[in-house]
Amino acid sequence: MSNLCTISFPESDFAPITLECHQNLSEHLTIQNSPVLFGCRTGICGTCLVEVIGEIPAPKLDEQEMLDTLAPNDSNARLACQIDITSDLEIRGLNE
Rank of each mutant, 00 (worst) to 15 (best):
E11D: 13
D13Q: 10
F14K: 11
F14Y: 08
F14Q: 11
A15G: 11
A15W: 10
I17F: 11
T18R: 12
T18M: 11
L19R: 13
E20Q: 14
E20H: 15
E20T: 14
C21A: 15
Q23R: 13
Q23P: 07
L25P: 03
S26R: 13
S26A: 15
S26L: 14
E27L: 13
H28G: 10
L29T: 04
T30H: 06
T30A: 08
Q32E: 15
Q32P: 08
Q32W: 07
Q32R: 11
Q32V: 13
Q32L: 13
N33I: 07
S34R: 04
P35A: 07
V36M: 04
V36A: 03
L37K: 07
F38H: 04
F38P: 06
F38R: 05
G39Y: 07
G39W: 06
C40N: 11
C40T: 09
C40D: 12
C40Q: 09
R41L: 10
T42Y: 09
G43H: 06
G43L: 02
I44D: 01
C45D: 07
C45K: 05
C45N: 07
C45L: 04
G46W: 01
G46S: 06
T47L: 03
T47A: 07
C48Q: 04
C48T: 05
C48M: 05
L49K: 04
L49D: 00
V50A: 06
E51L: 13
V52Y: 01
V52T: 00
I53P: 00
G54I: 02
G54S: 00
G54V: 03
E55A: 15
E55S: 15
I56G: 03
I56A: 10
I56D: 06
P57S: 15
A58C: 14
A58G: 13
A58M: 15
P59R: 09
P59I: 08
K60L: 15
K60Y: 14
K60T: 13
L61Q: 11
L61W: 06
L61I: 11
D62W: 09
E63T: 05
E63R: 04
Q64K: 00
Q64I: 04
E65W: 02
L67Q: 03
L67H: 01
L67K: 00
D68Y: 03
T69I: 12
T69W: 15
L70P: 07
P72H: 01
D74K: 05
D74W: 01
D74N: 09
S75D: 12
N76I: 00
A77E: 03
A77I: 07
A77P: 01
R78F: 01
R78T: 00
L79S: 03
L79R: 01
A80G: 08
A80M: 07
C81V: 10
C81Y: 12
C81K: 08
Q82L: 14
I83K: 03
D84Q: 15
D84I: 14
I85C: 03
I85L: 00
I85R: 00
I85F: 00
T86C: 14
T86K: 14
T86V: 15
S87D: 09
S87M: 10
S87V: 09
S87I: 09
D88V: 02
D88T: 01
